[in-house]
Amino acid sequence: MPPAAVPSITLTLIGKPGCHLCDDAREVVTTVLAGRDAVQFDERSILDDPELHDRYWDEIPVVLIDGDVHTIYRVDAERLQAALAERGH
């Protein structure tokens, strides 16, 4: 049996509790990431990190791929899948 894939991409969802757009974004992200072991998913709240709050408070949810902004506000599943496919995942 081959060894499990080591995540080579980090996808970060930045939002906050009680944000309906963040909930929608999380649903799209988790659906797109299902079965993609090579992508590490990290969720961060602007309420827990002053730097993230100052940077993104008026743009959440924000999706980062390897630290680069991919999406602000609404996550499009097809666009996210295409971005991951471009990176070989």
Rank of each mutant, 00 (worst) to 15 (best):
G67E: 09
G88D: 00
P7H: 02
L52Y: 07
I60S: 05
D68W: 06
L21Y: 10
A83E: 11
D49N: 00
I14C: 03
E59A: 12
E27A: 14
L21E: 09
A25R: 03
T12C: 08
D54A: 14
E51H: 00
A77K: 03
R55P: 02
F41Y: 13
P7A: 07
D37P: 09
A25E: 05
V62L: 01
D58A: 12
I60W: 00
I46Q: 05
E86T: 03
V75A: 07
I65V: 15
E43G: 14
P7K: 01
C19A: 10
I14R: 03
L80S: 14
I72V: 12
F41C: 09
A77C: 01
L13W: 00
V75W: 03
H20V: 12
Y73S: 12
F41D: 08
H89I: 12
E86F: 02
L80A: 14
R36D: 02
V39N: 05
L84Q: 06
M1N: 06
D68Q: 14
E59D: 14
P7D: 04
R36M: 08
T31L: 11
D24C: 05
E27S: 10
I60D: 00
P3N: 13
I72K: 04
G18A: 07
P50W: 00
P17T: 15
L47P: 09
H89S: 11
A34P: 00
V62Q: 03
G67I: 08
D54Y: 00
D23C: 11
P3C: 10
D23S: 14
A4F: 09
I46L: 01
H89C: 12
A38I: 10
R44M: 12
R74L: 09
Y56G: 05
V75R: 07
V69C: 10
H53A: 13
A77R: 01
D54H: 08
V69E: 15
L47N: 13
R79P: 02
T30A: 02
T31V: 10
G35L: 06
R87K: 06
V69Y: 04
L84C: 06
E27I: 04
G35A: 04
D23Y: 07
V28N: 15
L33C: 02
M1C: 07
G15H: 06
P3F: 06
D48Y: 05
E59G: 00
V39F: 01
E43V: 12
G15N: 09
R44S: 14
L84S: 07
V6C: 00
I72S: 03
L33Q: 02
R74I: 08
D23E: 15
E86M: 00
D37T: 10
R36F: 01
L80M: 13
T10V: 15
E78S: 12
I46Y: 00
T71L: 07
A25T: 04
L80Y: 10
H20L: 10
A34C: 03
P7T: 03
P50D: 04
L47M: 13
A82S: 12
V39G: 07
V29K: 05
T71R: 09
Q40E: 15
L47Y: 11
P2M: 05
